[in-house]
Computed example of a mutant assay.
Amino acid sequence: MNSPAPRRVLVTGAGRGLGLAFVRALLARGDQVLATCREPTANTALRDLLPAHPDRLHLLALDVNDSARFSAFAADVGAHVEALDLLINNAGVLPTGERFGQLRAETLEATLRTNTVAPLLLAQALAPALARGRRPCVANLSTELGSIASTRQFHSPSYAISKAALNMAGVLLGAALAADGVRVVNLHPGWVRTQMGGPNAALDPEHAVHDLLQTLDRLPADCHGAFLDRHGQPLPW
């Protein structure tokens, strides 16, 4: 199912994995895409897409951990598009090897900064552009590991805690942006074969992104922070 009209979409963490799959799928749909990562001009996969989409793909440098630059980044976005229809907060980190008894504050804090604080503050900086969009939406890439109700074992604590906090950030964003008609959703993409998900994951990025985009196409106007799987089914908090 395609969108009724081309959208103006910003994707964070667009240099690989799910982010890159989002960029490719959105371009295939005819959307205008602002693809961000730390060094986009050094990213061969993104650069290779430019010749076929010179007017619809824009590569923007963004370090999501440098929130002090978000206001300036919002101005950069405004130089390319007058409004945003969709913000995909995809950039994230998954620390490995964490064990109870050996947890480090630095790891927890860095993960929260990337996975929770950055999406919230970036959405805040881009809120005026989203308010001018068509059926605008903020899509936060969450995970079922952030479901408190489903947790049964000690696993990936920094990641799980940061994503549970991201779900709350999404609910708060939904309340803050509802008056401007901006929808907000927290999405679990499934276990995906990326650098983060590993080679044994069940889904390829293209399949996951296809399902996620279909869910975004169907998202109702009163979605203000729901926690859904890639098919649009609610997940337990």
Rank of each mutant, 00 (worst) to 15 (best):
M1Y: 09
A5T: 15
P6F: 06
P6D: 10
R7W: 06
R7K: 13
R7H: 06
L10D: 07
T12K: 03
G13R: 11
G19F: 01
G19E: 06
V23N: 04
R24A: 12
A28G: 14
A28F: 03
R29L: 03
G30N: 08
Q32D: 06
C37M: 15
R38S: 05
E39I: 03
E39V: 07
P40M: 01
T44I: 07
A45Y: 09
A45H: 11
A45E: 15
A45G: 09
D48G: 01
L49I: 11
L50K: 11
P51R: 13
A52N: 06
A52C: 03
H53T: 04
H53Y: 09
H53K: 06
L62H: 04
D63P: 05
D63F: 04
D63R: 04
N65G: 15
D66S: 12
A74W: 07
A74G: 09
A75Q: 14
A79W: 01
A79T: 09
A83L: 05
A83W: 02
L84E: 00
L84A: 02
L84H: 00
L86T: 04
I88D: 00
N90A: 00
L94E: 00
L94T: 00
P95F: 04
R99G: 03
G101L: 11
Q102Y: 02
A105T: 11
E106R: 12
E106A: 15
E106P: 02
E106S: 14
L108W: 08
T111S: 02
L112M: 15
T114E: 00
T116R: 12
T116N: 11
L122A: 05
L122I: 04
Q124I: 06
A125H: 12
A127R: 14
A127C: 12
R135F: 07
P136N: 09
C137D: 10
C137N: 08
V138I: 15
A139L: 13
S142I: 08
L145Y: 13
I148G: 03
S150W: 06
R152W: 05
F154T: 05
F154C: 05
S156Q: 08
S156G: 00
P157G: 04
Y159V: 13
K163F: 01
K163Q: 02
A164K: 07
A165G: 11
N167Q: 08
N167D: 10
L173F: 01
G174H: 02
A176Q: 14
A178Q: 14
A179R: 14
V184P: 01
V185Q: 01
H188W: 08
P189W: 10
G190Q: 11
R193S: 09
T194C: 13
Q195K: 14
M196E: 12
G197N: 13
P199L: 04
P199Y: 06
A201G: 15
A201H: 14
P205T: 03
A208K: 04
A208W: 01
V209D: 00
H210K: 11
L213S: 12
Q214R: 15
D217A: 15
R218T: 10
R218S: 12
L219E: 05
C223E: 15
C223G: 05
F227W: 03
L228D: 02
D229G: 06
D229H: 06
R230G: 08
R230S: 07
R230E: 05
Q233A: 10
Q233N: 14
P234E: 12
P234T: 05
P236W: 12
W237Y: 14
